[in-house]
Design a protein around this nucleic acid. Structure first.
Length: 276
DNA sequence: CTAAGTGTTGAAAC
DNA sequence: AGTTTCAACACTTA
């Protein structure tokens, strides 16, 4: 489900639902969602208050009192929703945070890929996943020069490079296909062979599409819902993803779909230039 | 029945 | 030692 715009949308919709609430009890229906010590997760959270929710790339950082943070990654299909604590459990509800006011925050995940980690606030960089992340789009560190330098050491294809999060953190399969089409770069282009002026364009379009998608509250193509159960608005803006076999809006050539390192990849074989 | 799906990761191979 | 590939995770839907 979620790339950075969707996770940001979850953050914005979830925060007002849970801010200031105090955890009374935690239930792990499917304990594997929690990647850190299960006993600590169950024993340390009761009594803690939700102070804020931050986000880095696709990771939610739920800030709690007493210097604790729950790092939550939704992976493909994770969702949060607030219910009454006595509401019937859905088949795919896996973790529940019961609050002192009788409500409960439930984590629902059809594929059970999502993960939570309980850490000390401030130790995010030592946390599995977050440590190796590159910079976020639209951050002050994400400059054209940064992207040019970041791609220099990458000999693999640009599609895989943008998906691996080590240079730019937050893009996923949908937005990468859109951005490569917008900049006319073939997904199989070798990352370090793309001309600097094209990388500069890539930088600008990454910032642009992420900002546009956040504004429209994310993209729902499969199952994404925000914390209020609403779909996103950006899917109608997608020009490439999900449009295999349809004509490219620029040249009319039919979009093709190939597998690139195991990920479905749609592109225009006429517009998108391959750099090798 | 088979394949593919918004993502990450650890291990193996370069 | 850094980089890259790929199966695995678990379940639903086309």
């Amino acid at each position: 489900m979620p790339e950075m715009p969707e996770v940001e949308t979850v953050r914005r919709t979830l925060l007002p639902l849970v801010k200031g609430k105090t955890i009374k009890k935690v239930i792990l229906w499917y304990p594997k969602i929690v990647a850190t010590d299960h006993e600590k997760f169950l024993s340390e959270l009761p009594g803690k208050k939700i102070i804020d929710i931050d986000r880095y790339a696709k990771y939610l950082l739920i800030r709690l009192s007493d210097n604790l943070t729950i790092v939550s990654h939704l992976r493909m299909e994770g969702k949060y929703h607030l219910t009454a604590s006595d509401a019937p459990k859905d088949k795919h509800d896996h973790v529940e945070f019961v609050f002192t006011d009788g409500t409960a925050l439930r984590y629902n995940d059809v594929r059970k890929f999502g993960r939570m980690q309980l850490i000390l606030t401030g130790t995010e960089r030592q946390t599995t996943g977050i440590g190796k992340l590159g910079v976020e789009p639209n951050s002050s560190k994400f400059t054209s020069e940064y992207l040019i330098n970041g791609l220099k050491r990458k000999k693999k294809n640009i599609k895989n490079t943008l998906l691996d999060q080590s240079v730019v953190a937050g893009l996923g399969n949908i937005y990468v296909d859109e951005v490569l089409w917008r900049t006319k770069i073939h997904p199989l282009s070798q990352a370090n062979k793309i001309p600097v002026e094209k990388v500069s364009e890539l930088h600008d379009q990454i910032n642009k599409i992420i900002a546009e998608a956040i504004k429209l509250q994310g993209t729902t193509v499969h199952s994404f819902l925000n914390a209020n159960g609403q779909v996103g608005g950006f899917q109608s803006k997608l020009q490439v993803y999900g449009h295999v076999g349809e004509p490219c809006t620029v040249c009319g050539t039919k979009f093709e779909k190939i597998m690139v390192n195991g990920r479905g990849t749609t592109f225009c074989p006429h517009c998108q230039v391959i750099y090798k």
